[in-house]
């Protein structure tokens, strides 16, 4: 007996078993009312529960999440704006402080410079005065010294003449002689 024959007879047996129950069970109207009744009951009940309870609950949860995310995004962007505003304010005040510090430094420097210049001028003036005074004294001493030297020369010349020719020259002659030597 071939394998195929066995397979075919098995299939035939299976088919026969089906043929025993007259026709398709689907086309037997005996159980149509029952099927329709239980379909209406289960499907209708499920619809009522879905429409009344489950779907609004799920939709509400989804909606709530969407709102919450949108809210969070809004507040995040608001905070970001605030942060950038704060940063701007900080930068402004920092720049102000820097400018102020610079102006203070410049003022102080100018003040100090002025003071230094003033002190220098004062010192210069004092020194000038001292120099002038010193020069005046030097000139005085010089002319005094010259007068004394001339008097000494006249005296010396008189003594020399007296000793040499035993004659006392006049003061005019002596001072004239000294002046001529001086100018020579």
């Amino acid at each position: 007996m071939s394998v195929f024959a066995i397979i075919i007879s098995a299939a035939a047996a299976a088919g026969e078993a089906g043929a025993d129950s007259a026709g398709l069970p689907q086309l037997d109207p005996t159980w149509w009312p029952s099927q329709l009744f239980w379909l209406a009951l289960t499907f209708g009940g499920l619809y009522a529960l879905m429409a009344g309870r489950f779907l609004p609950a799920i939709g509400g949860a989804i909606e709530e999440r969407r709102d919450r995310i949108a809210d969070d995004l809004d507040s995040a962007s608001e905070l970001k704006t605030q942060a950038s505003e704060a940063e701007e304010a900080y930068n402004t005040s920092l720049a102000d402080a820097k400018a102020k510090a610079q102006s203070i430094a410049a003022d102080t420097r100018a003040e100090v410079d002025a003071e230094i210049a003033k002190m220098q001028a004062e010192t210069d003036e004092a020194l000038e005065k001292q120099v002038v005074a010193a020069e005046a004294r030097i000139g005085e001493m010089k002319s005094e010294a010259q007068t004394k030297v001339r008097a000494a020369a006249v005296e010396t010349a008189r003594a020399v003449v007296e000793t040499l020719i035993d004659e006392t020259p006049t003061d005019e002659t002596l001072s004239g002689a000294v002046a001529s030597v001086e100018s020579a």
Binding site: S34, F37, W38, L46
Partner: peptide, 20 residues
């Protein structure tokens, strides 16, 4: 009308019950 609880009804109830 015969509206007996059948094997079909049973599996409608099981399926619907599981969904609920």
């Amino acid at each position: 009308y015969d509206i007996s609880l059948t094997n079909s009804s049973l599996w409608m109830l099981i399926g619907t019950g599981a969904i609920i």
